[in-house]
Amino acid sequence: MDKNSLKPEQIDILKEIGNIGMGNATTSLSKMLEEKIKMDVPEVSLISLSEVPELVGGPEKPVAVVFSKALGEVSFFIIFLMPEHSALNIIKALTDGETNEFCYMGRSVIREVGNIVGAAYLSALSFLTNYTFKQTPPILAIDMAGAILGTIFAEADLADDTLLLIKTILNTELTDFEGYLFIVPNWEKFKSIVEILGLELEE
């Protein structure tokens, strides 16, 4: 995969999928939190493996990551990453202040938030492509960003050194929360999705 393999219109399509998916996700999250959530326009980039931790504040930054795989005609990874303090804030907000630590309850809250975001993204993608996806149960790790992302890339058996990343940042004022959604598709297969969407757009 090289940097020239993405055309501007394909990047636009990927951004749009990101937009719609995250739009769904923020709606659900904002209902849960009872406050507005701001969402940045998704960024689509081709980036080297080793640079990914830099995007979220460096490899040593403590983060909570909810990870699941979307399996279907096209498979990809859904990674929802929150800085540790954001994760703690959202636990506190969603448990009405009852807990603000990574206990059993706190961990389930975080997993559920990741699940909602991932599922919203997938349902948007399904809607646009008519593909169906099966999402694996989300799993959670809380550790250094570099350690978690490295582990995910290794488990993925990623043969490429370059990843296609769709990154969206969410943030809220009241809860002081920030989250990053990364979609890491297998580019070869993801192309067919982009093509389907591209054809539809041309009609």
């Binding site: 931790p53 460096g58 490899p59 040593e60 550790d143 250094m144 960003a145 570099g146 350690a147 978690i148 992302l149 490295g150 582990t151 290794a154 488990e155």
Partner: peptide, 13 residues
């Protein structure tokens, strides 16, 4: 001779 080599964030790596 001198200095430090450091790698941050070894998970499964």
């Amino acid at each position: 001779v001198s200095g430090v080599l450091i790698t941050v964030g070894l998970g499964s790596c």
